[in-house]
Simulated assay, not measured.
Amino acid sequence: MMGQTILVTGAAGFVGSFVAARLADMGHRVIGCDNFNDYYTPQLKHDRVAALLAPRGIECHAVELSDAAQVAGLFEAHRPTHVVHLAAQAGVRYSLENPAAYIQSNLVGFSHMLEACRRHRVEHMLYASSSSVYGANAKVPFSESDQTDSPVSLYAATKKSNELMAYSYSHLYDLPMTGLRFFTVYGPWGRPDMAYFSFTRKIMAGEPIPVFAEGLLRRDFTYIDDIVEGVVRLLFKPTPAADGAPAHAVFNIGNHQPVMVMDFIATLEQVLGRKAVIDFLPMQPGDVPATYADTERLRNWVGFAPATPLADGLLAFANWYNRWSNNSGVH
């Protein structure tokens, strides 16, 4: 399927910038938007635009999705056939400090996107959910059919709400919609608030790194290229309505290989050639003991599931980080 007009929200973000670049490389007309907020340094967002979007002719419009008029104007101006909605207020711990940001971005902004997709009859809206919806699920690996009505953070609650809102719009208006439960995405151009990024910065500076729950937490680290591959394959293969169910589905996108945080740190030390100074801290509110993706549904539907080894992905990140921090002056 070539030559579609695809709107990517959060296009200056980590996943959004890579997805937009890949879609443009495939020959599609890609429209990007972002609000360039300061949850982390906006300079990194502008650097992504300069490195990944601008060379491909992708414009990234400054748009606040919680403003219905701005969303309506964006759709009127560009009339996308497909939408990849990746804009959101991210982060579990920050949701304890600034809950209003999550309500505005993840609920109000999401509702405006649903309305715009309904009005313009987009062919498919694919949106970011999160592995956080599984809460402190004791059953592993996490399957899309597991119960997800016990969120342990407001961030998780907003992401579960997105799935419910999308389901209702798909049911009411026959709109194909797909939710993606991302599992700890990492790689070059990543988010500074994520452990792999902040740990790298601190290790290189000789500063102690905070390690919660004695380093016994396990995370399913998923490399950015694998995420992009899953997104692109799913975007052009919406789940059809069937047996009274709407054209809505959710998919895990994870590496199916959870890694203990201490093992993750050992791998990071190896690729950086530096030892970490560790500051052990108790479990944090909103954290979960483990994330572990069952990817059978994804593999069965699009013939692909992430598999990049952690050591390979962290080496690629470390090589990028050294270049970027030297060029940007950010350390």
Rank of each mutant, 00 (worst) to 15 (best):
residue 104 Q to C: 08
residue 123 E to H: 13
residue 99 P to F: 08
residue 116 A to M: 05
residue 122 V to F: 00
residue 123 E to N: 13
residue 122 V to S: 00
residue 118 R to N: 06
residue 123 E to Y: 03
residue 109 G to D: 07
residue 126 L to C: 09
residue 107 L to Q: 02
residue 109 G to H: 03
residue 103 I to T: 08
residue 109 G to K: 05
residue 105 S to W: 00
residue 109 G to F: 06
residue 130 S to V: 03
residue 110 F to K: 00
residue 128 A to I: 08
residue 130 S to G: 11
residue 98 N to F: 09
residue 121 R to C: 02
residue 120 H to S: 06
residue 116 A to G: 07
residue 131 S to H: 11
residue 101 A to E: 14
residue 129 S to K: 02
residue 125 M to S: 07
residue 124 H to C: 07
residue 108 V to H: 13
residue 129 S to T: 09
residue 124 H to K: 11
residue 110 F to T: 01
residue 116 A to D: 01
residue 112 H to I: 10
residue 115 E to A: 14
residue 106 N to Y: 06
residue 127 Y to F: 15
residue 114 L to A: 02
residue 115 E to T: 12
residue 131 S to A: 15
residue 101 A to F: 10
residue 105 S to M: 07
residue 98 N to V: 13
residue 119 R to G: 12
residue 129 S to G: 12
residue 99 P to R: 08
residue 108 V to D: 10
residue 128 A to H: 06
residue 132 S to L: 07
residue 126 L to N: 07
residue 103 I to C: 04
residue 97 E to C: 10
residue 96 L to Q: 12
residue 118 R to Q: 11
residue 125 M to P: 07
residue 104 Q to W: 04
residue 104 Q to F: 04
residue 126 L to P: 08
residue 99 P to H: 09
residue 97 E to K: 15
residue 112 H to Q: 11
residue 102 Y to S: 04
residue 131 S to M: 11
residue 110 F to Q: 00
residue 124 H to G: 08
residue 111 S to M: 15
residue 112 H to F: 09
residue 129 S to W: 01
residue 122 V to T: 13
residue 101 A to Q: 13
residue 101 A to V: 06
residue 100 A to H: 11
residue 130 S to L: 04
residue 108 V to Y: 10
residue 106 N to P: 11
residue 108 V to M: 10
residue 103 I to V: 15
residue 116 A to V: 03
residue 101 A to H: 11
residue 128 A to P: 11
residue 100 A to E: 13
residue 113 M to W: 01
residue 123 E to W: 02
residue 131 S to N: 12
residue 128 A to N: 11
residue 105 S to F: 01
residue 97 E to W: 10
residue 115 E to S: 10
residue 117 C to K: 02
residue 132 S to R: 05
residue 129 S to D: 03
residue 129 S to Q: 05
residue 123 E to F: 03
residue 99 P to Y: 08
residue 104 Q to P: 01
residue 126 L to V: 12
residue 120 H to K: 09
residue 99 P to C: 10
residue 102 Y to H: 14
residue 121 R to D: 07
residue 126 L to T: 04
residue 106 N to L: 07
residue 124 H to N: 09
residue 105 S to I: 00
residue 115 E to C: 02
residue 122 V to R: 00
residue 126 L to H: 08
residue 103 I to F: 14
residue 129 S to H: 03
residue 114 L to I: 06
residue 107 L to C: 05
residue 107 L to N: 02
residue 132 S to C: 13
residue 98 N to P: 01
residue 96 L to G: 11
residue 106 N to R: 12
residue 130 S to F: 02
residue 114 L to K: 02
residue 113 M to R: 01
residue 109 G to S: 12
residue 132 S to W: 03
residue 98 N to Y: 10
residue 105 S to D: 14
residue 131 S to E: 15
residue 98 N to M: 11
residue 121 R to V: 02
residue 97 E to R: 13
residue 124 H to T: 05
residue 99 P to E: 09
residue 126 L to F: 10
residue 125 M to Y: 07
residue 108 V to C: 09
residue 111 S to K: 13
residue 109 G to T: 09
residue 110 F to D: 00
residue 97 E to T: 12
residue 112 H to W: 08
residue 115 E to W: 06
residue 110 F to V: 00
residue 101 A to C: 12
residue 125 M to C: 14
residue 131 S to I: 04
residue 122 V to W: 00
residue 121 R to L: 03
residue 96 L to P: 00
